[in-house]
Design a protein around this nucleic acid. Sequence first.
DNA 1: GATGAATGAGATTTCATTCAT
DNA 2: GATGAATGAAATCTCATTCAT
Lengths: 193, 193, 193, 193
Amino acid sequence: MVKPNSEKGKASRARLLTIAASEFAKRGYNAKISDIVAAAGLTQPAFYLYFPSKEAVFEELVQAFRSNLKILIDSSLLDPGIEKENVFEHIKTKLQMFFNFLAAEPDLTRIGLFVDPNRAQIRADMVRMVRGNLVKEQQSGYFRSDLDMEFVAECLVSMIEQLTETRLLPGLSSAGHLATQIVDLLLNGMIAE
Amino acid sequence: MVKPNSEKGKASRARLLTIAASEFAKRGYNAKISDIVAAAGLTQPAFYLYFPSKEAVFEELVQAFRSNLKILIDSSLLDPGIEKENVFEHIKTKLQMFFNFLAAEPDLTRIGLFVDPNRAQIRADMVRMVRGNLVKEQQSGYFRSDLDMEFVAECLVSMIEQLTETRLLPGLSSAGHLATQIVDLLLNGMIAE
Amino acid sequence: MVKPNSEKGKASRARLLTIAASEFAKRGYNAKISDIVAAAGLTQPAFYLYFPSKEAVFEELVQAFRSNLKILIDSSLLDPGIEKENVFEHIKTKLQMFFNFLAAEPDLTRIGLFVDPNRAQIRADMVRMVRGNLVKEQQSGYFRSDLDMEFVAECLVSMIEQLTETRLLPGLSSAGHLATQIVDLLLNGMIAE
Amino acid sequence: MVKPNSEKGKASRARLLTIAASEFAKRGYNAKISDIVAAAGLTQPAFYLYFPSKEAVFEELVQAFRSNLKILIDSSLLDPGIEKENVFEHIKTKLQMFFNFLAAEPDLTRIGLFVDPNRAQIRADMVRMVRGNLVKEQQSGYFRSDLDMEFVAECLVSMIEQLTETRLLPGLSSAGHLATQIVDLLLNGMIAE
DNA sequence: GATGAATGAGATTTCATTCAT
DNA sequence: GATGAATGAAATCTCATTCAT
């Protein structure tokens, strides 16, 4: 295995990585190296020029998603204090960022959220992040104090994941629209006044 | 492949089916026939006495989940009119039934919800059912008329699925507790009064 | 992998083992599974019915040689006290047994002595055994007391190994003849009287 | 493949040859070209600038050992008549030269004696040389006339090979010490006087 | 003189499935 | 009803070697 040293090599590696992402996203870990290299216009050994094993590419893709996610989470923590008058807008914006992040690299998202055997870990990270934000806002008095924010965070994350799969990635709804709908539902509830 | 005629044959087939469910639930579609028959105390050809192929058992398990689900859905539609005074209790009860259904056969549930490649179809069915109920209640004036019940149903189903995976099946929360929490969150919303 | 349960299975396993021995003896560890199964009239997966891996058959063959050797060594230790009058005959007999042992299973011998990467260990065992015998006889006064029996044992073993390869296994000399020649040379030396 | 014309080219070729010897000595013919070129600070195609194939380097190394050996043998044949009074010293000296030769290029020695598939040929050459010397000395009346010198030569060569592997190359014994021990053992025999 | 990229050919191993009994 | 033995087809990975520069 070798780090590519030329433009051509970099291109081949990148092509393999992109195609691998797409194949893993489509078929799960059972995606075949032979399909990947064929789609990249290469032969099987070429794959092993750039990656030590099938597991290694997969792991590289998962890590890519994870580290992107970490960047998003970290930036979200740097977030300024909440503007009292509009929690609604505030949360909506965050949600929208989240959806945009998930829509930016659909294959990586699918791999990280749905095909990685350790996806529970990733979800746990997301739940922790969301919960942190919610608790702060709860302490500021915006949210009912009797809500179990762990539970709420888990619900919210599950909605995000699912809507990402069924609406965002297929292009049925925009990040903004989904964010608005979620916030409206969760903040205001369903009861008619 | 044959239909089992004797008691012994029926027992072997049933054993294979149960164990197959457990293995598919644990390892996904990659579960191995060799493991299944070994756990059933049989040999590989015995498997093919009762099932034409690996795909066929898998499909049979998925169909089992689906038809159970259909029965639940149908019974839910037969449901009497809503008691005006307590929508809350009413919905909570339905949710609890749903969770109880999902907890009754954990392996089938895992297969139907998480490992079946066509799980999107199953989810769509669930969404449709939930949506039907919600719309009726919305028309009766219990819920805000501006809510997109398709969207709400999808959120609700995603919450159910996720909580089933992370809390119900692992035994961390009871069906009743989860139902209560969900109804409280979705009906009342998060905003502090 | 499976223990064979029928005569046919036992025969197949035995055939594979014999042919594997022959192939490893001829080509070293690079012998190919495909050649072995072909010579056994089987297909590749059949091999894995009886052995978990290529390494495992090889190890089984090495262990077979080793345990045969251990039996020989142990029986040689049970040896009664030396008949004073004929050390010569005594040692010759032992050497002959040794050669007969090595000639009995030529392929195993070749594998144990020449192709096993850990053959140094086997030789060390043989040297230890031989040395033990020689030291006893030295202490009984049959051999010069100034000889380093570790050294002598190593020479003797090397002669045995080499003559096994060049004369015994090719059928150029008999065990008895080789034993006689060695004893004559080593005991009496080369100097003309 | 080209003959190197520049100093740099010669140096590269020599480096490859030395490292190849070391790798073949360590790992047998399974040594990898990729390891060799890496250790030489070169790339795989560079190897093929200087050698037509893996087999070719290996053969070149074997031939190097063989021709060195031939020089030794030829010089040994040019040897002056034996000094009557000290056959012992005479033979010891020759043996010591032989060991020194074998110790001079340990990697070549290991390749020639232990890894070359045709090592039997090399051994036959050595046996022939040794036998020639021994017969002359036998004819001069120094050795018992009833000894089969072909046999003795083979024993002697096997001892030399083995002691080279286990004592000389690991640095456990010096050439002089080994020569002395061998001559003492073979000339005087083991029998206590 | 040397390189980066790529390949042909093949080796081991796995697994669902079938044959013969 | 069930078994022991066996297979077809394929997947991952390795390595000596070549192409193009």
